[in-house]
Design a binder for these strands. Structure first.
Lengths: 167, 167
DNA sequence: CAGTAGACCTGTATCATACATGTATCTCCA
DNA sequence: TGGAGATACATGTATGATACAGGTCTACTG
């Protein structure tokens, strides 16, 4: 499991361990009851709406780094489930604002609780320093990944309005 | 980006950051040319065959924590691409052994190089201590996830032969 | 006001995966 | 030793998450 060459090859270790981490998290999400009422993508959308406030499909798709058509469908499903609501934007009538409903927030919190329990249990033997470091480093990695993605996308289509309606 | 409450809530931070990490890595894999000749699942299969040696579909599916039918198809594709070969097992004629071909190893190394470059670049501003810690902690997390998955699976179907032909 | 850009939706395609089922083979015990 | 059950694999079918292309309606701008 702990191949000695990685002691001296941190990049190689990160490379292989992140590969298997994604694999395992995918499998786990599929097999567990974590995402009973929303899928993983939906959960992230709900969290985004909760943290950043209501916004339109376009802004949500930019934030999630997903195609707008994908988000349209995800939001459609969640609307049927009663987890989000859509309000016509009277200023720009092409657009509508996606709002988290109380039920949506409830479901989101419940998934969050399950996920927190999972990760608390997975890291229960870690020192709190390790826990903090891992969170911090993962966050840093995310920021770099986002920057890189933005750079890639900007070579293709430039300009992204990112209009957002907070309420 | 760096919400202050996470300073005192490492689990919460891990929870949200891993969610977005998976999201971003998926997006990145889709958009980049990292997986030109094999997909991510295929790359992991090639790495597994390289590290653990040739094995049959069943053992591979256990190792990857995937359904055997999924692996059958993945291997089928890679065989057509010439990345793996299958040898009839003369002892057990139901089974055949999946072997990495030279071309497969070459492709695997090329993907590995690209991924290494990516992660080296993403973590280039990290201290080497941070790099090492991140790799170590991710590896630990993987082990815990595997153990948990094994526990879940064993409640459903018990017994897994894990026969493997090393050569 | 004409033309272009933007927001959204829908159709279609792809990929990765799982489950159910079928077939050939193996194993083991009565 | 011969059949029952287990195993290995393949195939059919389904689902979920995503992207891209194209259409419609609306907004903006010269």
């Amino acid at each position: 499991m702990d191949r000695p060459e990685h002691e001296a090859d941190p990049i190689g270790r990160i490379e292989i361990e992140l590969l298997t981490l994604v694999r395992h998290l995918e499998t786990f999400g599929r097999r567990s009851d974590l995402y009973a009422r929303v899928d993983r993508a939906g959960y992230l959308a709900l969290r985004t709406l909760d943290e950043l406030g209501a916004m339109n499909i376009h802004a949500l798709s930019e934030t999630l780094h997903l195609d707008a058509s994908t988000v349209t469908r995800q939001v459609g499903v969640m609307q049927v489930e009663g987890l989000v609501d859509r309000r016509l934007d009277r200023v720009d009538r092409r657009s509508s604002v996606v709002v988290l409903t109380p039920a949506g927030r409830r479901i989101m919190r419940s998934v969050e609780r399950k996920r927190r329990r999972l990760f608390a249990s997975l890291t229960k033997d870690w020192s709190s320093e390790d826990q903090e470091n891992f969170g911090r480093l993962t966050a840093t990695l995310n920021v770099s990944l986002i920057e890189r993605d933005v750079a890639v996308r900007d070579t293709r289509h430039s300009g992204s309005s990112m209009r957002r309606a907070k309420e």
